[in-house]
Simulated scan of single mutants.
Amino acid sequence: MFLVTGATGSLGRRIVRQLREQDSSVRAFVRLYSNYGELEDRGAEVFIGDLTEARDIAKATRDIEYVISCHGSGKDAQAVDYRANIDLIDHAIANNVKHFVFISVLGVDRGYQAPTFKAKREVEKYLMASGLNYTILRPTGFANNLLPLAERFRDTGLYLLIGDNQNRSSIVSTDDLAKIAIASVTNSSAQNQVFAVGGAEVLTREDIPRIFAEVFQREPIILNPPLFLFDGLRSGIGLINPQLEQSLGTLRTLLAHEFYCTTEEITRLESTFNLKMESVRSFIQRYLGSGLSTANE
């Protein structure tokens, strides 16, 4: 039995789908107001709870062999990104869980002060010292986040690019990341290892609208406001909603810095998990060419 937290998120939903396609038993940790009908339809055991409640985590981890932690906080990094994961690890130990997979973020070890980065780094350190068998995955940006941008581009030709258009990234297929997370629990070469997880290519940020232009056969109209405009907007928001301003710190970090995997890191990843990472172009074509709605992707 797998326990998947963040099961209705873009990554968690894919992990549950793939596990059920393999006929694996999976307990999906969800919130009451989330859209979890698809997970039930696929045969997942739905556990309705709150990750900020230790008693819910205690119940969810009973009779579990593997934990895949892929939830995110949105706003409360301390309660959800940090404390909930610490409680998950503690209860995984108490329940003799065989393997714990933690979805972190690329760049978590660079000393960024954004709360999400700090929380995930502390969880990494706690997990490494816990005595559990673990795999830590540090992905770059998720390719599914590009789907709404691609749809807007297809319809209007517009692309909003904030900040330096030469910043590099290696955006990962969210489906590939789900495969790697699942495979980690049985791959001996992944035991007690940390992997940077990126896509098949290193792209500059201005490469993304170029790829969209090739896929949809239209000229891009790129809007490229400088980063200081975002900073001004964030500061203004902080006067009204300090918590939202703090959560936007993670986005600010992502906009201001480069997040890409080296050739050596991708080679190690592909060799360990015996797969070829998907390109951004392939991902966009596969989803938008199939008629799928991107609402739950």
Results as ranks from 00 to 15, higher is better:
Met1Ser: 14
Val4Lys: 06
Ala7Val: 05
Thr8Phe: 00
Thr8Arg: 02
Thr8Asn: 02
Ser10Gln: 14
Arg14Gln: 11
Arg14Glu: 13
Ile15Phe: 04
Arg17Leu: 11
Gln18His: 08
Gln18Pro: 02
Arg20His: 01
Gln22Pro: 00
Arg31Leu: 09
Arg31Met: 09
Leu32Val: 08
Tyr36Lys: 09
Tyr36Gly: 05
Glu40Val: 12
Glu40Phe: 08
Ala44Trp: 04
Ile48Asn: 00
Thr52Ala: 13
Thr52Glu: 15
Ile57Phe: 02
Ile57Val: 11
Ala58Cys: 06
Lys59Phe: 06
Lys59Thr: 12
Asp63Gly: 09
Ile64Cys: 00
Ile64Lys: 00
Tyr66His: 09
Cys70Pro: 13
His71Cys: 06
His71Leu: 08
Gly74Thr: 10
Lys75Trp: 14
Tyr82Glu: 13
Arg83Gln: 15
Ile86Met: 08
Asp87Met: 10
Asp87Arg: 08
Asp90Val: 05
Ala92Gly: 13
Lys98Asn: 11
His99Tyr: 09
Phe100Ala: 04
Phe102Pro: 14
Ile103Ser: 06
Val105Arg: 09
Asp109Tyr: 01
Arg110Cys: 08
Gln113Gly: 11
Gln113Val: 15
Thr116His: 13
Lys118Asp: 11
Lys125Pro: 13
Leu127Phe: 01
Ala129Asn: 15
Ser130Cys: 06
Gly131Leu: 08
Leu132Arg: 10
Asn133Val: 12
Tyr134Cys: 03
Thr135Ala: 05
Leu137Trp: 00
Arg138Pro: 04
Arg138Lys: 13
Thr140Val: 14
Leu147Gln: 00
Pro148Gly: 02
Leu149Ala: 09
Ala150Gln: 01
Asp155Ala: 15
Asp155Gly: 06
Thr156Cys: 01
Leu158Gly: 05
Asp164Met: 06
Arg168Ser: 08
Val172Asp: 03
Asp175Ile: 07
Ile180Leu: 08
Ile182Glu: 09
Ala183Asp: 15
Thr186Tyr: 03
Thr186His: 07
Asn187Met: 02
Gln193Gly: 01
Ala196Ile: 02
Gly199Tyr: 03
Val202Ser: 00
Asp207Phe: 02
Ile211Ser: 01
Val215His: 10
Leu223Cys: 06
Asn224Tyr: 04
Asn224Ala: 03
Pro225Glu: 12
Leu227Gly: 00
Phe230Trp: 14
Asp231Met: 12
Gly232Asp: 11
Arg234Trp: 03
Ile237Ser: 05
Gly238Gln: 08
Pro242Ser: 08
Pro242Asn: 07
Gln243Val: 15
Gln243Lys: 15
Gln246Met: 12
Leu254Gly: 04
Leu255Glu: 10
Ala256Phe: 04
Glu258Val: 11
Glu258Asp: 14
Phe259Thr: 07
Phe259Glu: 07
Cys261Met: 05
Ile266Asn: 02
Thr267Gly: 09
Ser271Gly: 15
Arg286Ile: 00
Leu288His: 06
Gly289Ile: 10
Leu292Ile: 07
Ser293His: 05
Glu297Asn: 02
Glu297Arg: 10
